[in-house]
Computed example of a mutant assay.
Amino acid sequence: METRTLYNDFPTFLKRFFPGKVQKISLNAGFTCPNRDGTVGYGGCTYCNNQTFNPEYCRTEKTVAVQLEEGKRFFAHKYPEMKYLAYFQAYTNTYGELEALKRKYEEALAVDDVVGLVIGTRPDCMPDALLDYLETLAKGTFVLVEYGIESTLDRTLRRINRGHTWQAAMDAVERTAARGLPVGGHVILGLPGESREDMLGQAADISRLPLDTLKLHQLQLIRGTRMAREYEERPEDFHLFDDVDEYIALVVDYIQRLRPDLVLERFVSQSPKELLIAPDWGLKNYEFNHRLQKRMKELDAWQGKLYNQ
């Protein structure tokens, strides 16, 4: 009997491009964000504390090459044959003067065993001149552009001080895909003011975009953020998934409504314990994935089962 694939995973996606094991190394290349420096807004997104996704080796005083070498040492003892993707992750990694951006990307690609780039950015920070350059670069190496979409509802984007619209996200993804570049998206489930129906409706909107990959994350309340203060003042505006099984149920329903060929890279985010207020499930990514897959099998659920084209 044929075994049905529950969902398309990221390692399988990478096998289309690389014969062996490939690992992303997160970088902090010293970028800021137009939602912090006043170009779009001040203060950043209400949920954002960048410390939550920077490993110890990511220090802005270190060069891109030094961060990559330290990241390689971290992984190489397990897999000596490993190749690496330079993951420009912190803040907005296309926000800057074009020549300065090129220098950072090319510094990363000059490091031994680095076989491509993953560039995390905002939908409102992708000028055509940079797309021209990335399109040319991608003729010789792997380049994945990952956009923080976060929500498909403009009222939510305004509420979290995101500084761009859903239309801007659609435009950026479509312009990038038109260049033949792989495109990723990132959304947060559980943002204030969004109902379960809103979140499930998002799956249909996301599926209409020419995205190759998608990351889902649960909303996490992080110490020192504006959202943490808002939660103290109006907890009734928030629905935090304190029960992991409730979040799993939502993710199962969401996955079933997604386009069947979309690659699902992640379902959860893990912030440092000292910064995290809630929800704190105490689960590693692989443990969450195991529970999710078990539940999908129990429900005879699979990606795209409820997808309406």
Rank of each mutant, 00 (worst) to 15 (best):
C33P: 04
Q23I: 15
I25T: 03
K24H: 07
D37C: 11
A29M: 09
G20C: 02
P34Q: 10
P19G: 03
G20Q: 10
G43N: 14
G20R: 12
R16P: 00
Q23R: 15
R36P: 01
L14Y: 02
T32H: 08
T32Q: 08
P34M: 08
A29E: 09
F31T: 11
N35E: 13
R36M: 08
N35R: 13
R36T: 07
G38Y: 00
S26K: 11
S26T: 14
K24C: 08
R36K: 15
Q23G: 13
N28H: 13
G30M: 09
P19K: 08
T32V: 14
R16W: 00
R16N: 12
N35T: 10
G43S: 13
R36D: 09
V22C: 02
C33L: 05
K21R: 15
K21G: 05
T32G: 12
L14A: 03
D37E: 13
R36Y: 05
Y42C: 14
I25R: 00
G44Y: 10
G20F: 00
K15A: 12
P19D: 03
T39H: 06
R16H: 10
V40I: 14
L27K: 05
V40W: 02
F17M: 02
N35Q: 13
G20A: 10
P19T: 06
R16T: 07
N35Y: 13
K15G: 05
R16A: 05
L14E: 00
P34C: 06
T39V: 14
G20L: 02
C33Y: 01
F18C: 02
S26W: 04
N28V: 05
K24R: 15
G44I: 09
K24M: 11
G43D: 12
L27H: 04
Y42S: 15
K24E: 06
